[in-house]
Amino acid sequence: MAQNEKLAELSEAGVAVWLDDLSRDRIRSGNLQSLVDEHSVVGVTTNPTIFAAAISGSESYDDQLHALAVRKVSVEEALRTITASDVRDACDLLAPVAEMSPGDGRVSLEVAPGLAHDTDATAAEAGHLWWLVDRPNLFIKIPATEAGLPAITETIANGISVNVTLIFSPERYRAVMDAYLSGLEKRVAEGGSLAGIASVASFFVSRVDTEIDKRLDKAGADPSLKGKAGIANAQLAYQAYEEVFSSERWRSLEAQGARPQRPLWASTGVKNPEYSDTMYISELIAPGTVNTMPEKTLMAYADHGAPGAPVQKSYDEAAAVMRSVADAGVDLDDVFRVLEEEGVQKFVDSWDELTESVRTQLEDKA
């Protein structure tokens, strides 16, 4: 089938189109396959909020929930089994994509968000989920918290592909890239192969604007600064990516078969209705990147999206925007700290909501 021209053009510019959503209904109905066939989708990301909406709003999970209930499994085991099942099926659907483009065709599954500040538990959970899904085109999502960084290194060293999530600042992004390279180096030092290992680094965009816009309003700053920081911050992240993945340290690993850790633009659905609904796609076009989109944003770009200037031409302007935001009285370090804390907490809240929903359903179907 013919691909949507606008999304195909985006793909040709080096931006892999991924869907930020997954449900059993989406898989079984053929919707996900149609997005692959007609809208250039080559990957899928999930998070606890996505699964909470999927499981609580569908009857497609009833038979599995009944089987789990009569076996009297724990709520935690039920959650792992249900989410792993959907992710495994999505991995199988995207396997042909992965064969053609090994960095794509990937589906992400997140470690329990309550482990975000526990390095050892995060690494152990990553290993368990990798074993449970048992598909080579899986990504295990690990948050870029301080405790998450050594877990990323350990997980990569164990040969497990990782999607690093909840990155908000270029500084933390540099630490994430270092954790990835350190994991590759450790694996090589231990005699392991780098074949099949892949990684993306999920840099969040719209949430940065939401937080900074609020602070600009409070400071009485120039309104023209609003809606600029999220994109500028991501553009500077790509500049950091270019620096790290052109270094001698990287070249040495690349010669041994390593793949670069691609930047992934996350949180690309526009929160402020006054902004263009495709701005976090149009203004973040660069080779070797991924843009994971909610279906609403994906369809908006398919309908009326248009590419902006390449990211590489925007570094000076992006730096100027971030300086202006700081000069207006916005404490950027505090912004990034708050966003990380809120990001973790939102996923914990969704996970708790999901846990309670599954517990209730297990009791009803026992």
Rank of each mutant, 00 (worst) to 15 (best):
R187E: 01
G191L: 08
G192C: 10
E185R: 14
A201V: 00
F203I: 10
S202F: 03
D209N: 15
F203P: 13
R187D: 02
L184M: 15
E190R: 01
A179I: 05
E211T: 12
R187M: 02
D213T: 12
S202N: 04
D178L: 09
L181I: 11
V208Q: 00
V205Q: 08
S193C: 06
E211Q: 14
I212S: 05
D178H: 14
A201I: 05
D209M: 12
R207T: 00
V200P: 06
S182K: 08
G191Y: 05
G192F: 00
I197Y: 05
S182F: 03
A201Q: 03
V188T: 12
T210R: 06
A195G: 02
V205Y: 10
Y180F: 13
L184T: 09
V188M: 04
V188Y: 00
V205L: 10
E190A: 08
A189W: 08
S199Q: 08
L184P: 07
D209K: 11
D178M: 00
G196E: 01
G191E: 00
S193H: 09
A198L: 07
D178K: 15
A198S: 14
R187Q: 05
G183C: 05
F204K: 04
V188C: 01
S199E: 11
A179Q: 06
A179E: 12
S202E: 08
T210K: 14
A198K: 13
I197L: 08
I197M: 05
A179L: 05
V205K: 05
R207H: 03
A179K: 05
G191D: 01
G196A: 11
A179N: 10
A201L: 12
I212H: 04
A198H: 15
V208D: 04
R207Q: 04
A198E: 11
L194K: 07
A198F: 15
G183T: 01
G191N: 02
E185H: 04
A195D: 13
S199L: 07
L184A: 13
S182Y: 00
L194T: 04
F204C: 01
G196M: 01
L181V: 07
E190Y: 01
S202R: 06
V208C: 03
S202D: 09
T210E: 10
V200R: 13
G191C: 14
S206A: 13
K186T: 10
V188W: 00
I212P: 02
